[in-house]
Amino acid sequence: MKKVQGNDSFQRINYLYQISKHMAGINPVLSAYYGNLIVNVAKKNVLKIHPDIKRQICKKCRTMLVDKTSGKMKMRNRNKSKHIEWTCNTCGVKRNFPANKGKDHRVWLERPEAVEEVIN
């Protein structure tokens, strides 16, 4: 396996993400603690959190959002544009993601042309 810079931190973030998600329904306090740690590890090592993970962390209290356990997902219409609204059950903060039918809302990292090299 080729060495990647910051690989051990990525592994750590991955692991923390898993346990944070596991704890989300059981103990929101610990889930927030692990979520907070993900953000701090990424900050300390100057790494980017993958958007898939980042979108699941509550912006305010940093618990992992899972539908129907630690958060609520809802489709909403506002000004003719659809979006997904996430509500955190712990702190009650709301977050919106656009989701229109004809448009491409993927961020750069999710597009196929962003893949430079696959390391395994």
């Binding site: 991955n14 704890m23 306090v29």
Partner: peptide
């Protein structure tokens, strides 16, 4: 944060059975 109870983890708030999966993921990691 304090109001939500983020700082204090009471002595009997976490069940052992809840954290066993953590240990399994950890040993893989």
């Amino acid at each position: 944060k304090k109001a939500l109870g983020f700082y204090a983890i009471p002595r009997d708030s976490v069940k052992y059975s809840e954290v066993v999966p953590l240990n399994q993921i950890w040993s893989d990691y």
